[in-house]
Design a binder for these strands. Structure first.
Lengths: 301, 301
DNA sequence: CTCCAATCATAGGCGGGGCCTATCAGATCG
DNA sequence: CGATCTGATAGGCCCCGCCTATGATTGGAG
């Protein structure tokens, strides 16, 4: 049985006339006669009472027609949905973002994203790198903004921009008097984020292993970390995009001599079919950040 | 687009694997790959994200799948309904019956009908001949039991049995002393049914035109008519199957010399597709009435 | 009563599309 | 690096739906 047959059935039932139903269906009358007859044979039910001037649906036909109408309506709903889903740049887009980036980047890219991709409905999801990668692999995310490379052939990533690290100091810290700070100097009393944050590992790698590491204090977020530094518990290293927030928290910022930093990337499943949307989002972010990268390259904060 | 395609879509979405979905669908894997690909082209939507070990439905696919499931479910419901509608001897059967026959025939044929056609659900509809013919022609009835021939090529009928007429008299009526009554004698003070009853016309035709005809009294049903006769307002002519009811009403019955009567027929639209059901009902009625016809032929009441 | 118009059914032929097997191409893993 | 599993591609076959032409009935007009 075929959807076409059901449409023919509905047409004949509506017109009660093979010829007119054929015209309405865009086929010849014999086609309709044959197909209806075949449908009757397949169902084992006489569908129409053929008289000289009309073809009236039988009682059995009337019972079946409701189901036929349902099937046809469902497929047309499917086609309509497909129509609206056709644009890969439209619809929900679940974008993971690491916590040390989300609150500082998102405000900057919302407007450009909306301008460049008006039909896209981005749904940000903030979580640590490993969680994002898990959700990406299990199809719970469409892409993710990370500060690390991805491993494995099932994921692919593209670099979007470089973000320098800055030394963050209490205003009364001895190093605050310096124009620039050496990474090794920071490591004396550096505080880092709690486990799982990629920024923790990157800070340690940039400044060298240290005994301090915040001691018993575990900062689970960048704002907490900055408040701890402002309270005089030590120093830290913050990503450039958080500079504004750090200054608002009363911290003194200084460039690092080795100009360490991290590369922000967008990652997606290699076979993800909406790659055009991924690239478009990447383009918007990279474009929006290019001015920041230029300013950072000249040493400005 | 095709129902088959939707089934394939559901199969792949369920198994997340082309090969297993193909096996479950009873086709080869290339067939499935090609058809899914064609469906994607038609819809303009990528339905599956093909990776090396799995084919995951895309978000768009998940939205479309509900509609696909609906369409497939509707067609399967249609097939199931057709299965149960397949037997023309099963299901509703709207049978019209004239009022001068219904209350006396129906009790006799209910049990035999149920025995011979257990799946049939007869729905009796009692009305006068013209109304029955109208409903028959407008497909509101499937067949009708009438006492007249039908006209026009759109209707067909078959004689089922002959029903003799009997003279019905008040017990103290002069004619009650006779063994048989001549029709002309009845016409002196005959009462007949109101307009629209075929029995009215048949009584008048059998006994000849008369001035009485019940005068201002209009009996709209046979029980009323019998009560009027029992009350001494006149005589009448009743169909044989009503003999029992007439005797219960206190009437005296006498055979008529010319042995007038009417032929009960079953009528249906010439093109009505459940003719087998019509004939089967006719057979049951004719069989049940054959004993009555034999007794009537010997003059017994 | 015959002819004509209308209706649905039937016949024959054409073409598209779905199905198959065989094979290719890429990924994964020992 | 080959073995294996995955989905994609190619070529050929055949069914089936479509068409036009025609037949069979019916009902109405002249």
């Amino acid at each position: 049985m075929n959807l076409r047959d059901l449409r023919y059935l509905l047409a004949v039932a509506e017109h009660e006339h093979f010829g007119r139903a054929a015209k309405a269906s865009g086929v010849s009358q014999p086609t309709l006669s044959v197909q209806i007859r075949k449908l009757e044979d397949q169902l084992g039910v006489i569908l129409f009472e053929r008289a000289s001037k009309q073809a009236a649906p039988t009682a059995a036909c009337l019972q079946l027609i409701d189901h036929a109408r349902g099937a046809v309506a469902a497929t047309e709903a499917l086609l309509a949905s497909a129509q609206s889903l056709r644009d890969p740049l439209a619809g929900r887009f679940r974008l993971g973002i690491i916590p040390t980036l989300a609150p500082y980047l998102l405000p900057l890219i919302f407007a450009p994203l909306r301008a460049a991709l008006p039909a896209l409905e981005p749904e940000p999801w903030e979580d640590q790198t490993d969680a994002l990668l898990d959700r990406l692999r299990s199809h719970q995310l469409d892409a993710a903004l990370l500060a690390t490379e991805v491993d494995g052939p099932d994921l692919t990533s593209r670099a979007l921009f470089d973000e320098p690290f800055l030394a963050a100091l209490p205003p009364d810290h001895p190093l605050a008097a310096r124009a620039t700070v050496a990474e090794a100097e920071l490591s004396q009393d550096i505080l880092v984020l709690s486990d799982g944050h990629c920024l923790r590992d990157q800070a340690i790698e940039a400044c060298g292993q240290t005994a301090a590491l915040g001691g018993a204090l575990r900062a689970s977020s960048l704002p907490t970390l900055m408040n701890m530094v402002a309270a005089g518990y030590g120093t830290t290293l913050i990503p450039g995009l958080a500079a504004g927030a750090a200054q608002d928290a009363g911290l003194t910022l200084r460039p690092l001599q080795g100009r360490p930093g991290r590369t922000l990337r967008i990652a997606w499943r290699t076979h993800f079919p909406r790659r055009v949307a991924v690239e478009a989002i990447g383009d918007v972010v990279a474009e929006r950040m290019s001015s920041f990268a230029r300013r950072a390259a000249t040493g400005a904060v």
